[in-house]
Design a binder for these strands. Structure first.
Lengths: 221, 221
DNA sequence: GATAGTTTCATACAATTGTTTGAAATGCAA
DNA sequence: TTGCATTTCAAACAATTGTATGAAACTATC
């Protein structure tokens, strides 16, 4: 019977350290010290540092995607096959925002690890990351069904911007807090999600398709 | 007479390498090889690797801030002391977007270096970065003057989201290109700027102050 | 309770890193 | 030229890194 006690202790410690300090300055010795296991255990159980990171990433990546897709399916079911655009966007940005900003410690580490992974693109992760495109494509398709009149380009930009806002809010919540001197409540996760969704919906619908015009008008200046 | 030939060769090579590959995996030996100078030259001219990075960052940081403030001042002058909100946002996101996505090679390296710096937060940079808050505060003040009716919280979020969209577009333009299968033209820098500005303006004005309502309405669901 | 397979451990290894050193080369003033 | 300061260079240094090794400890089966 394989002892996965050591194995999971390493995974947990590694994820927490990577989430906190990034891949750049976390050594295997840091990890085994935090996990209270022997240095050689990492190579014994995972083969190499890169494979450890890869395993962490694929596990969390699958979990996040599953969570997002569940919300999407639920929204589509509730809407009789066609989800509302705000529900789609909520399914896209909700899980990550809740995971990173919410109070749940365990989820928080997982989500912050994923943010790190999306920022500091280390080789073992870069190789896997292409699958994310396929995942996002499902959301693009749902958006196309929800807003059949919008151009594909507008939809892609809307999707891109929604992720951008959610992402940056997690990555740089500290700056926003400092800049606003605490006026922006970063503990109100639900409020943040709705703010991101609201802006994204506006970007996509633009008060009845004004976005394209607005872009055009501003460009003409 | 000090020989700044070596000095500037190091600076140029370091900036290019850091911009291309990030701080994580660029060694001093990579830099001196690219600059075609001796290894010891870095420590002789800069003292340490950290001080080299810091010098690069402060130089570029000052330049970017100056550029942004120039555009802001010009916009405020043109508007008789009060700039339009879209002009303010354009001054905020324009320089970086033009720098990173534009064709100008030299500016491109500089801008991409700054993006790296804002992502991979290495110690020497982290220490300096607090000044950025003061810089952003000037834009927040201009926005307050331009939209005196909006709440401060909304303005901060709008500023935050504008930077988020610009930032992510630079950092992850590749994903957007892949996702949209080339439909989103990332060479049309002016168009991208206007798109970011348009969405930010909508987020801030929300079709005559609908943002807050919309957030409220969505939250009520 | 002996044995085979698995897991842990201390230790060592090879490679890479930023930094230092002291001598050689260079530039420039007298 | 001589003398002095600045700059370059090859070499070495100390520290850290991921990885490998072989013996010890453990676990479960017979």
């Amino acid at each position: 019977m394989p002892s996965d006690q050591t194995r999971s202790a390493i995974l947990a410690a590694a994820e927490r350290l990577y989430a906190d300090r990034g891949f750049g300055d976390v050594t295997l010795r840091d990890i085994v010290a935090a996990a209270d296991v022997n240095l050689a255990a990492v190579n014994y159980h995972f083969g190499s540092k890169g494979e450890l990171i890869a395993e962490l990433f694929v596990t969390r990546s699958l979990a996040t995607n599953r969570e997002r897709l569940n919300e999407l399916k639920a929204a589509e079911f509730a809407g009789g096959g066609r989800a509302s655009i705000d529900a789609i966007l909520r399914a896209l940005v909700g899980p990550t925002l809740r995971g990173c900003l919410g109070p749940d410690r365990e989820r928080s580490t997982a989500a912050r690890f994923m943010i790190r992974a999306s920022i500091e693109s280390v080789p073992p992760i870069r190789r896997i990351k292409n699958r994310e495109i396929d995942h996002l494509r499902k959301f693009a398709a749902a958006m196309r069904r929800s807003l059949p009149d919008r151009s594909a380009v507008d939809l892609y930009w809307g999707l891109h911007f929604a992720l951008a806002m959610a992402h940056q809010t997690i990555r740089d919540s500290e700056r926003l807090a400092k800049l606003s001197e605490g006026m922006c409540d970063l503990n109100d996760v639900a409020g943040i999600i709705e703010r991101v969704v609201a802006v994204s919906v506006m970007a996509l619908t633009g008060g009845e398709s004004k976005t394209a015009e607005k872009v055009g008008a501003l460009r003409a200046r």
